[in-house]
Amino acid sequence: MKRKTAFSALFSIIFIAAAWGQTQADAILGVWESGNGKARIKIDKAGDKYTGRIVWLREPNDEAGKPKVDKNNPEEALRTKPLLGYSMLKGFSYKGEKTWEDGTIYDPESGSTYSCTITMTDDNTLDVRGYIGVSLFGRTDVWKRVVVKKK
């Protein structure tokens, strides 16, 4: 009986720890606004990786009044792809201590893809650091969580 109780307690601890870790990792899920306020990005989970798609643009249309496309993409075949819905964050894994690493961020304004680390500084703030090779050669953009009003 004692052995059974100890086993149940151990399993409960493992279960709670796993659930807690999962909650921490998934804290990044949601909709975020970039530092310049030009875009909102929805971060989802696909398998064990975190990705982010553009779901809103302050200026959704180009100068001709048509929906913006990824015209600066170095791959010509992708230049007609709409920016709305575009995956700009890819391949992030949770590394503990509110940090997601090993991912990339795509900047549609330059057509460049950078290595990227995301750190959650509080529940509603992400430090998104894009860099070239090593973190020193980079820039941090601060994203704020947005609350979508339900219709």
Partner: peptide, 23 residues
Amino acid sequence: QGQEGDTAVVAEDFSMYADAELA
């Protein structure tokens, strides 16, 4: 939970994200 993340990617009404405010 993993399934939920995957399926969320499939179809979405982008207009809903226009009406939002900073948390």
